[in-house]
Every structure is written in structure tokens, then in C-alpha cells.
Nucleic acid binder design. Structure first.
Lengths: 351, 351
DNA sequence: CGTCCGTGCCGGATCGATCCGGCACAGGGC
DNA sequence: GCCCTGTGCCGGATCGATCCGGCACGGACG
């Protein structure tokens, strides 16, 4: 039996005015415009040799008939998928960051006529991804996530957001942030505001972002002659865990006068834990975060943070992948994404 | 020129061991198994009449050769798209809610072998969606969002999350929450905890959720003989706006002893605004939210809220759409999604 | 006037999987 | 021995857009 291509209850209004509505194909356009399929195709594509008058006529006919190219047919012929896959870490934190990033990627991808397919979590590999997407965006790949190597070996080009530090094949491109520099900027800012004994609640996990933060604290402290106390909390730390870590830290080393935490989600917990010990965030204890987000913007007090500009970041990742797919950029390109320090009341100091 | 289907630098490891690797098609499998294309197809599909021994042999050959069906070809022949579109409101709030929901939808869709395509915001319509997806999920459709009518008229079935109240064609299915009941449950809970003068910071906007909340406050208040003061704040209220609204409200009517706010993002603002007036959230002022989220879970104090269980909600939306597409469920089905009240310290009361 | 070349358009082949009608063969019933 | 039924497999057609080779026509030039 032929697949049902006729009218359905959900058919659009265009169909409801025409009896026995059918999908308009290129052949219909060609017939109506009095040309052949090839000419119609060339006219609409901009390819081939077509007289300007013919091209215009075909375009008008297509418009008038409501012609929509069948994407499956086009993809079959062109041997591409017309879509990018997007893999986000399935962590409980930084969610608004990832959603912003996703929409940024969608915006850039549709600029190149590509869809963005949201890939499932580590659980369901959901079958072969190769023939369904032209390339993959893998965001904040964690070295211990078993899904990442599979994606890197799926047979399509992969661009990562942040570097991939795992053992598998390297991605064909990456967009990275200079996390060492942004952490240094935060520590510089805290020093400027009077902090002498900063500490870092570093995120755990095997992502490049987390690893860089853990390593960079020392790299900043040594030349400044200021040891930075580093304590590791889970990547997706709950506020309760963050609060407990902050209490431990401030109890063990009471002269700590500034706390930098990793993801924005942990910041409210730090505020809470500090207050429980009688400290006043923003005054006798400066607080900052390495990631900006709802929690830092709306904190009480609002929390100084590094704005990674997630929507632009997502755009940049999609742009790099599109550029590589279209041969506008050579493989193995790495691009740098700029960040911005948002100074807020939590590092005001001055007590 | 033929599209390049040969080895590429990003080809997977399977290709790197074979010189001149090619994509394995059904014909290759058929030849290797000593049968015709049709038989190979039937054997792998489970359709047609095929001897069990043959079926097993074909399956093994396919596995051994690493055969992956070309999805474009399959979609062309079967006249389907193999994907669902997901349209999320591009609001600045409730982001984690929507991301959880999206992953829920992805999980359910891949159970039916479907991809989920993330649709862009109201700006870029990104061309015709009809031939790229088999159906659409439109979440929290706002009556004033111009993109929604376009999606409803795109020529594919649409399932909405929450009802669509706009003027356009109705969706073919919907998954709804009983928001009147959940608001009533919150108000009941507050009364039980001693509140006598509750107020609602209702969300603005034309979504069914927002409209229901605004209407339901009166519906609860009248039989209880307790007027519920309703003040409308923007749907995507910033904490600052929420704080200001709370201050206004509590200044104008100082005997208000409980505030219910709409989205979770507004709750911290309410806490802040109340404290600025010398009130103590959780003690002499109860606070609750109609949506659970990071902000309510991690608030200080943690805020009682209605958990809409977004991941399950996304699954339910995808499931309804899949069921309708597969004719397992008749069109125009509406399903009810259960919610749960999370009681937390912000409504402890007892001062 | 004959040849050459460039423009404009067209026909057929192609991508890969699916589906339907039909053929061949074996076995059973009369 | 003949017909009839049913199983197992196959060939061709099909989905719709794209792409390449090639044909026809008209102007230019020697």
C-alpha cells in the first residue's frame, strides 16, 4: 500500500480550500510553469544555466502553488542529513546555561538551513546517529561519560564546547573559553576589593572546565604569594552540599575572606553556609562564581560572576561546525570564546 | 558531480580498518547474504513472508557488515520525517523546567525511534516545518505569540502542553495540568498552616497556565469566605520586579500573611521584598510558588511549591503525540498530568 | 555560406529503502 | 496424474529532488 499522502484532519488551511489536496512537488511546479523538472530545480536552486525570466516565472509559480521541497528526497540525493546533533551534559545544575546555549546553537544552525536534534542522555544511545545528522555538538564533554567516545566515533564531525580530555579520538574542532584567565580575573578582582585569603570551591568531575579551575588556582596563587585554598565539591553540587563545604572551609580556616565557587548553582549555598557562621557575604566575606546564571544574578546579595554568554557560545559552536562542514574552515580548528566579568554586590567589600 | 560518499577524516574506526570504505547499503547486505534486496528488506523489517532461517542469516550479515539503514531513503519512501518538533516559550524564566521537559520528551520520542528537533524562537520561522517533522510539541502556548498559530497551521499534528487559548485552529491533542486544583491545594495548605489573608502574585501573559491562576484565586476564595488579593506580575518577572510587587502588596495591605507566586523564579524576589519590610518568610509571612524549580528548592528558606514533574510532563506530551501519530489514540484526546505539592520550610508558620 | 561556440533547456539516471504483484516449487487431496 | 493451495523469494516500480551529458537554436566570424 502506498503511504497515505492525502488530506489528514490536521492538514493546513491551504488544503482545506482545495478538494482532494495533494502535496505539491517539483513536477507540479514544472508543469505549471511550462518547463521541465530539471529547469524548475535549477531555477529554484540558483544552479545551472537558466534565463532570468524563466527563473522568475518558476519562482512565482512555486510560490503560488505553495511548493515546499521534500527534505527527505533532497537529503537522499545530496547525501546529507540537514541537521546537527546537540549533546548536553545531563547534570542537575547549570540548566539555564545549557538551555540558552542550545537556543544559540539553533539560531546559528537555521542560518545554514540546518535543524538541531536534541540527543538523549547517556542512557539511550537511540541507535545510529550517523545518517541522521551531519555533525555533532558535544558540550562540556566529561572524560568519564561513556556516551562521549561513542559520539566522537559516530562517523560524523564533532565540535566540542570546551576541550575533550578523554582517551578517545579527538574532535574535529572546539570552541574553548580561557577558564584560567577568567578565574585569574575573579581572583584579581577579589584582591583589588581587599581579599587576602581567597578560597576556591572547585567543581569535581572530568570536564575540561572543572579540571582547569582546579589547576589554575595554584597557578594564580604562586606568583602573587597568596596560597589559594582549594576544596573540591561535586560538579552538580546541591546548595546543601555547597553550604556544608563552605562551613567546613570557613571553620577550618577562619581567616579566609573570599570564596569563589564553580557553577552558579552552588553560590546560594555558600551564602547560606557563611551566614550560618555569622559571616556577612559582600562585607566581611566576598563571594564570587565562575559561572553566571539565574542564581548569581538573583542572589541576595547578587553575586559577582563570570558571564560565559551561553547563547553566543552556542552560536559559536554551531558556527564552527557549519564552517567545517561547508569547508569554509579547515578541520582541527580551535576558536576562543570571550567571557566577561559581571561585578556585583557580593564582592563590594568595605566593612 | 556525485556527492562525496567516500572516506572522510572524521570517518569512524570501522572505516579506518578497511581501505576505500563505503557506506554499507541494503544491496551489499543482500548480496553478501545471497538474497535479493526485497528479501533483505523484509527480513530486517519483520514484514513480508521470509523463512526464519533466511531472516536470521540476513540479520547476521547486516550486523557483520555494520549495515545502517539510510534514514533519508527510508523517510522518502515511507513519507514520514522520523522526528518531532519541540517549541518552547522563549521566556527568561522557568528555564530548568523547560530543559527537564525537553529531555523527557526526547526520552519518550526515541522509544518510538523519533528524533526531537529543537525549534527556534519566534524570530526565525526557519522555513517550512512540515516535511521535516511528523508532529509538533508546543509547550505552554501563549495566545499572543505569533509563532504559535503558524505552528498549528503547519500541516502536521500538534500536541500542546497546557491548553491553547488563542484564536487559531485547535491542536490535535493536549496534555494539561489541573492548575485550578493545584492552586487550591496551595491555598488550602496555607490556610491549614494558619494563613488568613492570602495573596497571589499572578503571572501575566496569555498562556492557559497564567490565565487559570488568575481566575482560580477567586474561585477558591469565595466559598471559603476569604478574599484572595490578586496582583499581576509579568510572566517572566525578574526578581527585582517580584520584590517590588511584593513590597507594594504588603505595604498596601499589611495584614496579608501569605503570598503565592507564579513561576519559581519570582519566589526569591518575594522573599527579598518581604524582608525589606521587616517580615520573616516562613514565620509571619508564608510563601509558596505555583511552580517548583531550582529557585524554590534552593531558596532560603526552601519554598513550598507545586512540582509539575517536568520530565514526566515532557514524556507525556511526546507519548500522546506518538500515540496519535501511530493511531493508537484518536485525535482530540486530552490527557491530565498529575502534580504534587512539595511542602517546605517557607510555609512552616508557627510564630 | 559553413563552421564554431555559447546559451537555454531537457531527458534520463541516480540516491537507498520499501512495497506489491507474481513466479516457482512442494505437498496434499481427489 | 492433475489441480489447487500456500510458502518463500524476487523483480520492477516508486518516493521527489538533483545532476550530468547532451541537444537545439541563434549569432558571430572567417
Amino acid at each position: 500500500m502506498l503511504p497515505d499522502r492525502s488530506g489528514k484532519p490536521w492538514a493546513g488551511h491551504l488544503d482545506s480550500v482545495v478538494v482532494n489536496a495533494r502535496i505539491v512537488t517539483l513536477i507540479d511546479v514544472a508543469r505549471a510553469a511550462g518547463v521541465s523538472r530539471s529547469t524548475a530545480s535549477d531555477a529554484l536552486q540558483g544552479s545551472g544555466r537558466v534565463a532570468e525570466a524563466t527563473r522568475a516565472r518558476v519562482r512565482e509559480t512555486a510560490e503560488a502553488l505553495g511548493y515546499r521541497p521534500n527534505s527527505a528526497a533532497r537529503r537522499l540525493r545530496r547525501a546529507d542529513a540537514g541537521a546537527l546533533g546537540l549533546y548536553l551534559p545531563r547534570t542537575a545544575t547549570r540548566l539555564d546555561y545549557y538551555l540558552d546555549l542550545a537556543f544559540g546553537a539553533v539560531e546559528r544552525a537555521q542560518h545554514d538551513g540546518l535543524d538541531v536534534v536534541l540527543l538523549g542522555g547517556p542512557t539511550g544511545s537511540s541507535g545510529p546517529v550517523a545518517s541522521r545528522v551531519d555533525g555533532l555538538l558535544v558540550i562540556d564533554p566529561d572524560g568519564s561519560d561513556p556516551a562521549v567516545p561513542k559520539l566522537l566515533d559516530a562517523g560524523v564531525p564533532v565540535v566540542t564546547g570546551e576541550r575533550y580530555l578523554g582517551p578517545s579520538r579527538a574532535p574535529i574542532g572546539a570552541v574553548v573559553c580561557d577558564n584560567a584567565a577568567s578565574l585569574a580575573a575573579v581572583l584579581d578582582h577579589l584582591r583589588e576589593r581587599g581579599a587576602r585569603r581567597p578560597a576556591l570551591l572547585a567543581p569535581g568531575g572530568d570536564s575540561a572546565w572543572a579540571q582547569t579551575l582546579r589547576v589554575s588556582a595554584d597557578a594564580w596563587g604562586t606568583p602573587h604569594g597568596v596560597p589559594v585554598t582549594v576544596r573540591t565539591v561535586p560538579f552538580a553540587a546541591t546548595p546543601a552540599q555547597a553550604a556544608e563545604a563552605a562551613r567546613d572551609l570557613l571553620t577550618a580556616e577562619p581567616d579566609i575572606d573570599a570564596v569563589v565557587c564553580g557553577p552558579d548553582g552552588a553560590a546560594p549555598g555558600v551564602l547560606h553556609g557563611a551566614r550560618a557562621l555569622g559571616r556577612t557575604p559582600g562585607a566581611d566575606l566576598l563571594v564570587a562564581s565562575c559561572v553566571d546564571g539565574t542564581a548569581t544574578r538573583t542572589g541576595n546579595p547578587p553575586i559577582t560572576a563570570v558571564d560565559l554568554r551561553p547563547a553566543d557560545y552556542g552560536q559559536a559552536c554551531a558556527e564552527l561546525l557549519c564552517d567545517i562542514l561547508a569547508d569554509r574552515t579547515p578541520p582541527d580548528t580551535v576558536r576562543l570564546h570571550p567571557w566577561k566579568l559581571r561585578t556585583r554586590a557580593s564582592t563590594q567589600g568595605g566593612h
